[in-house]
């Protein structure tokens, strides 16, 4: 792959959502114009605007911003879950989004069954999961519990299992949404080792977090998102400072 070409290229991105107003039509109102259910009243709410971003291979980009600043929406667009309202998003290479750990986890299924369900949802093949199964279980430190239904797991155990599956996913780009703070101190240390490993392998990682510490430790570049626009872009320290100022 060409090193000088951005692996993610966003140009002039805008995303707005339709916010429907409360429906309090009476039956009479409805009868007067039944077709209105197809055209509910509401307004457009712009979440992101004028976003330009280039991410190169091997970069570790941090995205900071207050709640409601549009971080998650941006990640969802990168992950291909939302479509941009206007502008272009070009992503070259495979993406694994960790917007939430344990996507598709089912409480009634055993830990073992969930490994395969979640792993396949994340795009891994069944053969690969079979091969990596012992490794996943060992990493999660859940050897004794794999045949137990997930509903009997503690929340910490669930997160550990989810994280252990997630790191097996092989992709060019990883999108992480505040998943750093999982498990106890020991397990967190292991997680950070995994991130360091990504960095060494020259994987591209996009990290959304509120923790200035992790941005400082890992990110080569950062952006500060406020009210849907990039306020500061580039230097990690500047971004953290801007974030702290609000």
């Amino acid at each position: 792959m060409d090193e000088n070409k951005p692996i993610i290229q966003i140009r002039d991105l805008k995303k707005s959502f339709f916010l429907p107003h409360e429906r309090h039509d009476s039956l009479v109102e409805f009868m007067s114009n039944p077709f209105r259910i197809f055209k509910p009243k509401g307004e457009q709410f712009t979440v992101l605007k004028d976003i330009d971003l280039d991410v190169y291979k091997g970069e570790f980009l941090g995205i900071m911003g207050r709640n409601g600043s549009g971080k998650s929406t941006l990640l969802k667009i990168l992950a291909g879950i939302y479509e941009p309202t206007s502008g272009s998003v070009k992503v070259t290479g495979s993406v694994v989004p960790f917007l939430e750990l344990g996507v598709g986890f089912n409480a009634e299924l055993s830990g073992r069954e969930n490994v395969f369900l979640n792993g396949i949802i994340l795009g891994m093949s069944k053969d690969k999961l079979k091969k990596k199964y012992d490794e996943i279980v060992a990493f999660a430190e859940l050897e004794k519990f794999m045949d137990m239904p997930l509903k009997n797991y503690s929340s910490g155990m669930q997160v550990r299992l989810a994280f252990s599956i997630a790191i097996m996913a092989d992709a060019d780009i990883y999108i992480l949404d505040e998943v750093l703070a999982v498990g106890d101190v020991e397990f967190q240390k292991k997680c950070f080792d995994v991130f360091r490993n990504y960095k060494e392998q020259k994987k591209t990682v996009i990290l959304v977090t509120h923790a200035a510490g992790s941005v400082k430790d890992f990110c080569t570049r950062a952006v500060f998102l406020k009210d849907g626009v990039f306020q500061v872009q580039g230097d990690v320290d500047e971004v953290i400072e801007a974030y702290n100022r609000g």
Binding site: N106, L109, I120, S125, K126
Partner: peptide, 23 residues
């Protein structure tokens, strides 16, 4: 494409299994 079939199979297997779980 490979994953497409595997995902389909996994969804079918899971949803089918879940119906009679716990009985």
């Amino acid at each position: 494409m490979n994953n497409y079939i595997e995902l389909l199979k996994e969804f079918i297997r899971t949803d089918f299994k879940l119906r009679y779980k716990n009985s």
